[in-house]
């Protein structure tokens, strides 16, 4: 089942993680970062969250709007639009005097922030800037991981350069956007990975998301990570499990066993159907077993990194 394409995922320069809310994006991003770092890569994790959860997951210092090293060769930053816009302005306007004149002007700053999509573009632009960032004559980071917003907002963010390309006249802004598009569409350098669950609603959302990423945004789906996959206890024994549930329900003391058996058998059957649907999406897949844990901590992220490695990443 291991897909050879997965083995090249962490060799890319830019990987964006998205998917339905509550499917484990942050934990997956943390595990991918750990795995890449174990392989000697210098990694930058870019988050776009109001409330940063990476530090809790990896048990590190709080991650703010400045890039900082959190663990070994892993750096992280929580991008807030305002800071990003300033940094982005400096990156593209290059000349500090001009930048100061532009960005220190309240009117202009307010205006730029009001331009639709600018917030998202400044964040994506910052992440892409770090992909190209040089230090001592080489790339500062081997891999930039973007913990993108959930489905709708995530697609919006990835779509922004296309919108700029469409509506901005020729100039630096449009060139920046076009460079971004070229990088994001280069399958050797960039991939989007999607996090999901083996349940009906996340599954249909995932199918739509993958179609949008591929058909409209023309991006490579580098991996479909299915979280909370149950190990099949009743594989090929669905009918027997239901019969067993029925037999156990006749004995009052075993009633809860009957309920649990029936629920598990049905859940496994739903999962089997959905995993078949996922298989048709032709994206490299990794199944991540369900782990009942109170809080995701570093050991869990490390365990997940191992699951990913065993799954072919």
């Amino acid at each position: 089942m291991v897909d050879p394409a997965l083995s090249r995922l962490l060799d890319k320069r830019f990987v964006a993680v998205t998917g339905k809310g509550g499917t484990g994006k942050t934990t997956l991003t943390a595990a991918l970062a750990l795995l890449a770092a174990q392989r000697g890569k210098r990694v930058l994790v870019c988050m776009s969250q109001a409330r940063e959860r990476m530090s809790a997951t990896l048990e590190t210092e709080f991650v703010g709007s400045e890039v900082k090293t959190i663990l070994g060769s892993i750096d992280a930053v929580n991008m807030d639009p305002e800071t990003c816009l300033e940094e982005y302005g400096l990156m593209v306007l290059k000349v500090r005097a001009l930048y100061k004149a532009v960005m220190d002007n309240r009117v202009v700053k307010g205006f730029i922030r009001a331009v639709p999509g600018m917030d998202a573009w400044s964040m994506l632009g910052k992440a892409l800037f770090h992909v190209k960032e040089q230090e001592n004559g080489r790339n500062k980071y081997d891999l930039v991981l973007l913990d993108a917003p959930a489905t709708g907002h995530g697609v919006q963010m990835l779509r922004v350069p296309l919108v700029i390309q469409k509506i901005a006249p020729p100039g630096l802004l449009r060139r920046e956007a076009e460079d971004g598009i070229a990088l994001m569409r280069d399958p050797s350098k960039c991939a989007v990975v999607v996090c999901t669950l083996p349940e009906e609603m996340p599954a249909s959302e995932t199918e739509e998301l993958i179609a949008t990423l591929r058909d409209e945004l023309k991006l490579t789906v580098g991996g479909l990570f299915v979280n909370q996959v149950l190990s099949p206890l009743f594989a090929g024994k669905f009918d027997q499990a239901l019969l067993a549930s029925h037999a156990l329900s006749e004995i009052p003391a075993f009633e809860p066993l009957a309920t649990v058996t029936r629920a598990r058998a049905i859940r496994e059957e739903v999962q089997r159907n959905i995993l078949e649907r996922f298989a048709k999406l032709n994206a490299p897949r990794v199944y991540i077993p369900a782990l009942p844990v109170e809080r995701i901590r570093r050991p869990h992220a490390q365990a997940l990194a191992k699951v990913l490695a065993d799954g072919g990443v």
Binding site: V92, L93, L98, A101, V102, V108, I112, A168, P169, P170, G171, L172, L173, R174
Partner: peptide, 10 residues
């Protein structure tokens, strides 16, 4: 300065 960045007329 800004319009150098955004392109003419934007």
């Amino acid at each position: 300065g800004l319009s150098k960045f955004t392109g003419a007329g934007f």
